[in-house]
Amino acid sequence: MIRTLTLLAVFVLTLGLAACEEEPTATGPQNHRAGLPPKGPDYTGDLCAVVRNRAPFTITGRIELKNNNRATFRLARNETTRLCLNGTTFGNYTVTLVVTNFVTMPIFSCYTTVDEAIEIFARPNGDGFTYSATCR
């Protein structure tokens, strides 16, 4: 009985994953992970960031601070959100922008400031997409 339930659960989970919308794959030189944080002054306190999705599909991601505080987002095409959090920025008052796939694996990241809106783009590139953002 337990084995039958286990097999049934595996089948249902597999079927559920197969029915999910296919996630674009990341390719190309723009899909990079953030290197070392910039040097310069940091800031500790409240801050807010505006994030805009300019990709032709829904994206997920997060904004991270130096002390590992983070705010996550899921944005439909052309949607905008405002994320607020408290903590310490990286050098030159920057935060980390991380774009993730549907299982939250990072596919793009960069350091950026929050003094202007952060726009995220995805352009077709062969069999996948090239991600970029307004990273400053």
Rank of each mutant, 00 (worst) to 15 (best):
P24T: 03
R3D: 13
A122K: 04
T88I: 01
T130L: 06
L97V: 06
S109T: 01
N92W: 07
P41A: 11
I107R: 01
T27C: 04
L17P: 00
V10W: 09
F129Y: 15
Y43D: 04
H32K: 15
F129A: 13
T80A: 07
E64Q: 13
T94G: 03
F121Q: 07
G45K: 03
V50A: 13
L83S: 07
E64A: 14
I59Q: 08
N101M: 06
G16E: 05
N68R: 14
N53D: 00
R33I: 07
T113V: 02
A26D: 02
V114A: 02
G40M: 03
T88N: 06
N92Q: 09
L97H: 05
T81F: 08
P29H: 11
G61E: 08
C135M: 08
L5Y: 11
I59T: 10
T130Y: 05
E116S: 14
S109W: 01
Q30F: 11
A117P: 08
V51R: 00
V12L: 15
T130K: 07
I2S: 14
L7E: 10
Y111L: 02
Y43N: 04
G28W: 14
E22Q: 15
F129I: 07
V12F: 14
L5W: 10
L13V: 15
R52Y: 08
E79G: 02
N125I: 03
A18D: 06
T14M: 05
T112H: 08
V50E: 15
L83Q: 07
D42G: 13
Y43V: 02
A26K: 02
L97Y: 05
F57R: 06
D127N: 14
T4A: 12
T25I: 14
D46W: 05
E23K: 06
V50K: 15
C84H: 03
P56S: 03
V12G: 04
L47K: 00
I2L: 15
T81M: 07
V99H: 02
Y93C: 04
C48G: 13
I120R: 04
R77L: 08
H32A: 12
G28E: 12
V99Q: 03
R82V: 13
T44A: 10
T27W: 01
V103L: 14
A34V: 09
G126S: 03
E23C: 05
P29K: 15
L13T: 13
T112Q: 10
R52P: 00
T81N: 09
P124F: 06
D46I: 00
R82F: 06
L5A: 13
T81E: 12
A18E: 08
G126A: 04
L36I: 06
E64I: 03
V95A: 08
T94W: 02
L97P: 04
A26P: 01
L8D: 07
G16S: 15
K66W: 08
C20I: 02
E21I: 08
N92E: 09
D115L: 00
T113H: 03
V50N: 09
M1H: 12
V114T: 10
I107E: 01
F129P: 00
G126Q: 01
C135T: 08
F108W: 02
T113R: 14
N69A: 15
M105Q: 13
T14D: 00
N69E: 15
G87Y: 11
E22V: 12
T113G: 11
